[in-house]
Design a protein around this nucleic acid. Structure first.
Lengths: 221, 221
DNA sequence: TAGATTGTTAATCGATTAACAATC
DNA sequence: TAGATTGTTAATCGATTAACAATC
C-alpha cells in the first residue's frame, strides 16, 4: 500500500531526506543492517525519533537486528522521489542565486536546477553549471514547457511578491523563499521561508546568553 | 522589569525580528499607531500570533487604539539587540560564503560580518565588503581578539564537524550551519541548521502533492 | 534463554486556536 | 454608548518523551 504523502509533516520529510543521504554517503557500505541508534547518532536526533520517522513510511525493522540498509534506502526513495524526477527553477541570479545553483548542480545530481530567470540582459542565455538563464518574461513559457514544479526565489525584496505571484500563475506549486519578504501564496502552493536575515539575527540573539532557547532543538533544514 | 531572554522560543524571536524590520521598512511612517491585524498582514501570520508575540516582550497596546509604533520598535530593540553589538564571523569563503557576506554587509548595517576564515592561501588577507579573510589557524586568536560570538559555517562537509569544534573552543556560542552535515555541539552553544539540500528536497516533495493538472490561479489581486 | 532492539501505548509538553471578558 | 481591538483563559492539536510489551 502506498504511503499517503499528506500524512507526512514537513519536519518528518526533512529528516527522512537526511537519513537517506546519511545511509548512502556516510554509513559503512559493508554493513547490511543498521540500528536506529546508529542512524540517530549520524543525524543528531534521538533513536526514538528515527524509529518513529521510519515507521511513518511503513517500513519495519526486526527486533535486535535493526533495519536492512538496502531495503530502507529503497523505501525512503519510493516515498521521497518523484518517478518523473523534479525540475527546479532558480528565479533571480544574484550572488546568492548563483551560489545555490553551483551548490546543487555540483554536488547533488538527483536534484537539478534546470532553468534560471533574471531581468539583467547581460545574463540572458548564459549557461552556468548546466543551467540556462532566461529573461523573466519567459517564466511562464519555460515553466510550462519544461514542466517545472519547484522554484527557488532569490530576487530583490521589492519585487518578491510580484514574482512569486507569476510563479504560481505559471504552475509552480512549491517555492523555496530566500528573500527577506514573507510571501502570500494560495493554500495549494507549498512555501518554505529561509530568510537569512531572520536566521542570523536569531542565532545572534541566542548566542549572547550561551543558553539554548527554551523549547525544542533547532529545526533542521 | 527586563524580559527574561530564556523564556523566548526560537520561533518567537524570529518573528519578533521580522516585526521590527517590517515596522521600520514597510509601515507608513506617518502613522503613529498600528493594529495587530495590520502587522499580521505584513508578516503573513495571524493577528492573534502577533498579539501573543508582542505580549511576550511585555509591551502592551491599548484596546481599539493598537500599539504605539515608536514605543513598540524601541521595546523590540531593547529585547533583541545586544548593547555591545554582535560580531559575526564567516567560516568558509566559497560561493555561498561570499554570497552571504555580500548579502549582509550590503543590506543590513546593524548585523555585520567582521571576519572571514578559509584555508585557501589565495584568499587570505583579502577584504570583501568590509570583511577581512584570515587563515583558518587564526580562528581562535581573531575570535578572542574581536570578541566574536556568532559564526556562520559554510565549509565543505568533510571538515564541518572539526571546524565547528574549533569554533566552540574559540568561544563562539552561536552557529548558523549552512553545511549539509548535522553538527554536534555542547548544550550551551546555540545551533541553527539551514541545510539547503534538505530544504529543496522538502519543497520538491510537497510541490508534487500540490500538483494539479490545471494549476489554480492566485485568488488575490 | 538472556539481552538488545523494535513497535505500541500512554503521558507530557508546547504551540496554536477559539471563546470570552476588559477597555478605549 | 457602540464598536473595535486588546489581553486572558480554556480547548485543541501535534510533536516528543517515557514506559512497556513483543520478538529476534
Amino acid at each position: 500500500m502506498p504511503i499517503d504523502r499528506n500524512q507526512l509533516s514537513e519536519k518528518v520529510v526533512a529528516r527522512l531526506t537526511l537519513y537517506r543521504r546519511l545511509l548512502i554517503e556516510q554509513f559503512d557500505p559493508s554493513r547490511k543492517q543498521i540500528y536506529s541508534h546508529e542512524l540517530a547518532r549520524l543525524a543528531c536526533v534521538s533513536s526514538a525519533q528515527v524509529r518513529r520517522d521510519i515507521m511513518a513510511i511503513e517500513y519495519f525493522g526486526m527486533p535486535n537486528r535493526g533495519y536492512e540498509v538496502r531495503e530502507l534506502i529503497d523505501d525512503l526513495s519510493r516515498t521521497l522521489d518523484n518517478p518523473d524526477s523534479d525540475r527546479v527553477a532558480m528565479i533571480g541570479i544574484g550572488n546568492l542565486g548563483r551560489a545555490i545553483i553551483a551548490f546543487f548542480n555540483n554536488r547533488r545530481p538527483n536534484l537539478k536546477i534546470t532553468a534560471a530567470f533574471d531581468i539583467d540582459p547581460e545574463k540572458i542565455d548564459r549557461v552556468m553549471y548546466g543551467c540556462r538563464c532566461y529573461p523573466m518574461e519567459k517564466l511562464g513559457d519555460v515553466v510550462r514547457a519544461e514542466q517545472i514544479t519547484t522554484g527557488v526565489l532569490t530576487v530583490t525584496p521589492s519585487v518578491a511578491q510580484t514574482v512569486a505571484d507569476s510563479m504560481v500563475e505559471a504552475g509552480i506549486s512549491g517555492i523555496l523563499n530566500y528573500t527577506t519578504v514573507p510571501l502570500r501564496v494560495p493554500p495549494n502552493v507549498y512555501l518554505l521561508d529561509r530568510d537569512m536575515t531572520m536566521a542570523l539575527e536569531t542565532v545572534a540573539f541566542f548566542s549572547r546568553r550561551c543558553l539554548s532557547p527554551v523549547p525544542q532543538l533547532a529545526s533542521r533544514g
